[in-house]
Design a protein around this nucleic acid. Structure first.
Lengths: 248, 248
DNA sequence: GGCCGATGTTTTGCATTCATTTTTGCCTTT
DNA sequence: AAAGGCAAAAATGAATGCAAAACATCGGCC
């Protein structure tokens, strides 16, 4: 039986209810964000049933707003809602991950293209700064720092695209992926660390030249390579996924 | 005062409740889909308040499931949820449309790239068939038939990508755009009808050669051109949007 | 005559309640 | 002893109820 990893310690947890004077709860988006974090951070096991009652106690609310939040999370793809059988944390199959990585690659490719259309020299300078910082982490073999800079750069490029819809879509996809433990997947990334660095050099170069179409290509392939590395690592369950890419 | 375009005729409307024998309602996804259609089809005016009580009567349900559905639609970006002030139909600004079109372009670019990796000759043959049908509509100047085929082709390419996550994301974005009256935007598309046909020829050509990266480019630019045509048409409110594209 | 505040109404957000379904434990039967 | 069935318990989906907030209407004031 799947054991639920709910920490039911005596610490009251983050009650969202406002019990100060005003009397009104007004949690609106807060509960949603809190619950999303709760799930994304892995407090519930993969495929585990989402216990309504327990979460109600945990967050100090009744079932109505909780269920509203669950519906939203289901729409976002974080959980599955089975008719009359409650919510379950969506366990990402190797195939799901492959799909998510490709979509993320597509969105980053788009971000790169759009960024080239409107990015300022100042923004590029900021990215360059993060890039150099990342390079120092690379030289020091500081995986964690490197990864942090890496994420920052990708985020900056998405932001430079100046498209809020794209950012929202990107964050949604990235959130779903975040549930799988990155560190595990990235251990294998170390094998192609130098390669990844060179790809980032190419990204920066294309960005400087505002070569949108070219950057778009690089971004997608960069993600695709990252995906392949991650896949290779967890090959135990992804044997059949090594189909060849026909793209040039 | 914004008048709500709710048709409150005596015709009972599509009650979702199951009153046959079983007694159980079990509307689950049905209400959501019905409500989404209701909004996407334009039964409510842009920016109009979404009247909970009226919709409850209309669909024959209580407020609880309706509000759950509204939360989901808000997450999808179809409506805005204002704290303590209810839901309003999200009115798409010219800027929103620009963003949505670009994201759609990015997703189709991705679809084209992925399709090249796995599409079969049979699937290409099907697309070619639709393409030729579309061409016949073009020769006959049948805008409606042409447009139908056009959409089919784009859908087929997205389907050929074999990525359910991509399809879902694509449908979400397409749904949001669908709320604006296509026909209006497409009247101007007529000006570049021949150009669009040539672009579709290029799409098919790249697809046949499985030239993923190239197809990706073509798909994005195809959408970008479509966007520009649509923008030009409704230029009354999009004067400042003519920023130049730096991409080669 | 127009602007501002008070008061009643409507609407919203959430809690609670209720009917139905699913699940679980126990008992019977073979 | 294992399998099947039944009943109790829990959980789900939805309806209703209730306090607070927004909205609307009306009266007072300048």
């Amino acid at each position: 039986m799947t054991n639920i990893a709910l920490d039911t310690e005596t610490t009251e947890g983050p009650s969202l209810r406002r019990e100060d004077g005003a009397g009104q709860t007004s949690l609106h988006g807060e509960l949603l964000a809190a619950l999303r974090d709760y799930i994304v951070e892995g407090n519930l096991a993969d495929g585990a049933r989402v216990p309504e009652r327990l979460l109600c106690d945990r967050f100090g609310i009744s079932r109505t707003p909780l269920r509203e939040a669950l519906k939203v999370l289901a729409a976002e793809g974080l959980i599955d809602l089975l008719p009359n059988r409650g919510a379950r944390v969506r366990a990402l199959s190797a195939d799901d991950l492959r799909e998510l990585f490709d979509v993320m690659g597509g969105l980053e490719a788009l971000a790169g293209r759009l960024a080239c259309e409107r990015i300022s020299d100042e923004e590029i300078a900021e990215i360059e700064q993060s890039h150099h910082e990342m390079y120092r982490f690379y030289l020091r073999r500081d995986m964690h720092g490197y990864f942090q800079c890496n994420q920052d750069i990708h985020r900056m490029i998405v932001a430079a695209a100046g498209n809020a819809t794209l950012s929202a879509t990107y964050n949604s996809i990235a959130g779903r992926i975040r549930r799988v433990r990155y560190s595990a997947n990235l251990d294998k990334e170390r094998d192609r660390w130098g390669e990844a660095m060179r790809e980032h050099e190419a990204i920066l170069d294309a960005l400087r030249r505002r070569a949108g179409s070219e950057l778009s290509d690089i971004m997608f392939l960069h993600l695709r390579n990252k995906r392949k590395a991650a896949q290779h690592q967890s090959a135990t369950q992804t044997d059949e996924l090594d189909e060849e890419s026909h793209s040039a």
